[in-house]
Nucleic acid binder design. Structure first.
Lengths: 119, 119
DNA sequence: CAGTTAGTTAACCAGATGGTGAAATGAAGC
DNA sequence: GCTTCATTTCACCATCTGGTTAACTAACTG
């Protein structure tokens, strides 16, 4: 497994159960049993998901008698946001159309036996 | 494996090699060999990474003689951005401090034998 | 045609992941 | 101390992942 924080964050988020848990925690802290309730899987399975989230620093856990309340720690998501923002220019529609146009130009160059530039 | 688009996108991004490939493609399309050059892994390994990215719709591939040029398809990243933006309020520092304050209050309630509310 | 270049597919491997049931731990309540 | 509730740990399992080497396909080149 990769150990950098961003990879850790992305792989923690790559599971709908874990994203649902985060969504729930956005509404306030919750115990493991409460977090597990909406899912059909067993408690140990949820416990594992929580460990993944904790390792990714997306949650932290306290202690209140026999409960281990979980709380959202969204800081790593800021790093995700920073990363994804760098691609913002590439997903706007007008860029897509310009892109297609450039591809067409390149195809025409190819017809003329021009070498392609793969920079 | 989970099949929803968002999980597919997150897990495709959860690998530094694949993120590096996307970064490279942000500078323009490239052949498989060119994409593989910076890495010490073999070509089939890169080919697999490209297949993951393609399945996540983060790249598309053309055909130019013996080359299979790859191009960035950043649209799925918009979905990631939308998802992560919902947590923006949770990673700002002042919220964190307010949060800690509320936890402290809750601890005090516990000292008074007040029942906790986990909603 | 034979040879070269670009890339994929196939078979394999080690280790991670996501789930299970059963047993262990920890704290509270009687 | 025994019981109960919340949660974790353990042992196990199937599947996915990320890498390898070797063999194959596809297209150009001479």
């Amino acid at each position: 497994m990769t150990t950098d924080q961003l990879s850790l964050t992305f792989s923690a988020l790559a599971d709908p159960t874990r994203r649902a848990i985060l969504a729930r925690l956005a509404g306030g802290e919750a115990s493991v049993k409460e977090l597990a309730a909406p899912f059909k899987m067993t408690l140990p399975a949820v416990s594992k998901h929580l460990k993944v989230l904790e390792r990714a620093k997306l949650i932290s856990r306290g202690r209140d008698a026999q409960w281990r309340p979980c709380r959202l720690r969204a800081e790593p998501l800021r790093e995700v946001d920073d990363w994804v923002e760098r691609y913002g220019q590439f997903w706007d529609e007008s860029f897509g159309r310009l892109d297609d146009y450039l591809v067409e130009l390149q195809s025409k160059e190819k017809d003329h036996d021009e070498p392609k530039d793969y920079r």
